[in-house]
Design a binder for these strands. Structure first.
Length: 569
RNA sequence: UGGGGCGUAGCCAAGCGGUAAGGCAUCGGGUUUUGAUCCCGUGAUUCGCAGGUUCGAAUCCUGCCGCCCCAGCCA
């Protein structure tokens, strides 16, 4: 226990520990890896990052930060078929937004293609790899099954000299795709299928986004990943559990190649969130079929979607910390994510009032044309957030659901003949309703008590309810999108047909909202709490000061909704 | 009938032989000009099950059960 004090401090600050932090602390104490911690986040640029990647990013960067090490960003770009510059750009932006900075330049596995090619030659010369001319279908047949061993390819014992010449010819473009591949010579009878002579180089006649047309042979993940880690001096190569079976291969290659360092692979369980999906294929389908409005639709579990929804980077990092890291896979309740953002925004978002579904209220004893500018705190318990000005006028809007002609005692809002407090303003009493021909209430006539600003009514009564409001003449119109979960089933991935699990009410657009004037002027991505309604963010792209467009991040915790749902109201 | 993992409260998750942390959710109660926040309180005689070792086991051993991953020239 030498230098652990300094390292334990951040862990305490963030709350917990996990098996990797424990392990590394022990390694440092015993001098393993020269006491160094070098990690990497290695995405393949073939899609947008999602909440699951956030966990990996927080883990890799977090571990490096925690132990005073370094974390690199390396694009694992060994398959030109699926990759694109668009993803390289979005991934970098997402990592930065999350608040992490990688060590040095961005790395690419493709920048090691020359070295990797030499390593392949080394393996061939050592008689540990051979050029196979079996077709992909034949390779599959020869591989055997989960319960039956595979059998050797007839090309398995090809002379290394010949394999070398053929591999060079492959790299020269002299073979068509699928006609030849380079395989590691390990054990076709292994219980671990990854060891049954895995293909380590294949022919792809396709331009690569980084290396252009230089190569027509590309290393497989297994051949590229560990060697790239070794080249970069990575000490802890952290990946998800499904790669556990690859570790023996990872180690086999490291042992048989003249690599500059010996990284070690560690696996952790990937994080699943209920009511959502994280399969790149399925997310892409939602985008392609216009089920959502792009990769950054606020309902998407992508980092860019979460950002547009209004989540903060801090809340995501905090969420990952609360979830923890382990080797037992599970599904985290989406309520934990919601808790993370509420917790952040409760202390950091300024308050404002916004009426989503307006009902006009006329204060009959308020002088026509009179405007009284009230003040309200920017935040109920943060003086540093100052005050805001609230114009009150004869006509205001309140929320439709905040008025009932009659109601029982549990309903603490405006009821005909009863009193309620206008938030930050006076107590009013409903006297009358005006209905249209269809019998719908279009206006409520009230009187206000001028002695109730910051004071209870003189008669000693104290209205239990408080409702929000906006001046009908000074308020601004706003477009507000209320989002709910994209899927209504807990495990959408398990649905036979993905679309069957969709929540038809995942988006409700409110076009005629009224918002207090100053709140309409905020900058894009400003987060506010609309009191009694929820947390909202000014849309990153479509909002402009004076032309407000807000997205609901998350509703406030709503005890009333629970009571209502029980049928007691 | 192959190989590799995992099983601690509704959901995550500490614990690593000395008598079950914490968070979320839930449900009570208090404060409150947000039915919010905040504050208090609330659940495992028990750690998948069954045996065994031990003064003592969630922790060690044995067997069983359940769930997940692997048969791409994807990562």
């Amino acid at each position: 226990m030498s230098n652990n004090d300094a390292h334990d401090a951040p862990a305490e600050k963030t709350g917990g520990t996990n098996f990797l932090r424990t392990l590394i602390a022990e390694q440092i104490a015993s001098g393993e890896h020269r006491g160094e911690v070098v990690t990497r986040f290695p995405p393949e640029p073939n899609g947008y990052l999602h909440i699951g990647h956030a966990a990996s990013i927080c883990l890799n960067f977090g571990l490096a930060e925690h132990f005073g090490g370094r974390c690199r960003l390396r694009f694992d770009d060994t398959n030109p078929d699926a990759e694109d510059q668009e993803y390289i750009d979005s991934i970098q932006a997402d990592i930065h937004w999350l608040g992490f900075e990688w060590d040095g330049e961005v790395r690419y596995t493709s920048s090691y293609f020359d070295t990797l090619y030499d390593y392949a030659l080394t393996l061939i010369d050592a008689g540990l790899a051979y050029v196979d001319e079996l077709s992909p279908e034949q390779i599959r047949e020869y591989r055997g099954t989960l319960t039956e061993p595979g059998k050797n390819s007839p090309y398995r014992d090809r002379d290394p000299v010949e394999s070398r010449a053929m591999f060079e010819a492959m790299a020269n473009g002299e073979y068509a795709e699928g006609t030849a591949s380079l395989r590691a010579k390990i054990d076709m009878a292994s219980g671990n299928i990854n060891l049954r002579d895995p293909v380590i180089y294949r022919i792809r006649n396709k331009a690569h986004h980084q290396t252009g047309n230089k190569w027509c042979v590309y290393p497989s993940y297994d051949f590229a990943h560990g060697q790239s880690d070794a080249i970069e001096g990575v000490t802890h190569s952290i990946c998800t559990l499904e790669f556990e079976d690859h570790r023996p291969l990872y180690n086999w290659l490291i042992e048989h190649l003249p690599v500059p360092s010996h990284p070690v692979q560690y696996e952790f369980a990937r994080v699943n969130l209920n009511y959502t999906i994280t399969s790149k294929r399925k997310l892409r389908r939602l985008v392609d079929e216009n089920i959502v409005d792009g990769w950054d639709d606020p309902r998407m579990p992508t980092i860019s979607g979460i950002r547009r929804r209004g989540y903060t980077p801090e809340s995501i990092r905090n969420f990952c910390e609360m979830v923890g890291v382990s080797r037992s896979g599970g599904t985290v309740d989406a309520a934990l994510l919601e808790h993370a953002i509420r917790d952040d925004l409760n202390t950091n978002a300024a308050r404002a009032m916004c009426v989503l579904d307006p009902l006009k209220v006329v204060i009959t004893n308020w002088e026509e044309g009179h405007v009284e500018t009230l003040t309200a705190p920017g935040h109920p318990n943060r003086d540093d957030m100052g005050e805001r000005r609230l114009p009150l006028t004869r006509e205001i809007y309140i929320e439709k659901e905040d008025f009932r002609e009659e109601a029982n005692k549990k309903y603490k809002r405006l009821v005909l003949g009863k009193k309620v407090r206008l938030r930050n303003a006076y107590v009013i009493e409903a006297q009358d309703v005006v209905k249209n021909d269809a019998g719908e209430i279009v206006e409520v006539h009230c009187t206000y008590d001028p002695d109730t600003l910051g004071a209870n009514p003189a008669d000693g009564s104290k209205p239990k309810g408080v409702i929000h409001w906006v001046s009908a003449t000074h308020g601004k119109q706003a477009l507000v999108r209320v989002y709910d979960r994209l899927f209504s089933v807990e495990n959408p991935a398990r649905e036979e047909e993905l679309l069957d699990g969709l929540n038809p009410f995942s988006l409700t657009v409110h076009r005629g909202c009224w918002i207090e004037p100053d709140a309409a002027e905020v900058a894009p991505e400003t987060r506010l709490q609309f009191e009694r309604t929820g947390y909202f963010v000014a849309d990153r792209y479509e909002h402009a000061p004076g032309a407000p467009v807000f997205n609901r991040v998350v509703a406030l915790r709503d005890t009333w909704a629970k009571i209502e749902a029980r049928g007691n109201a």
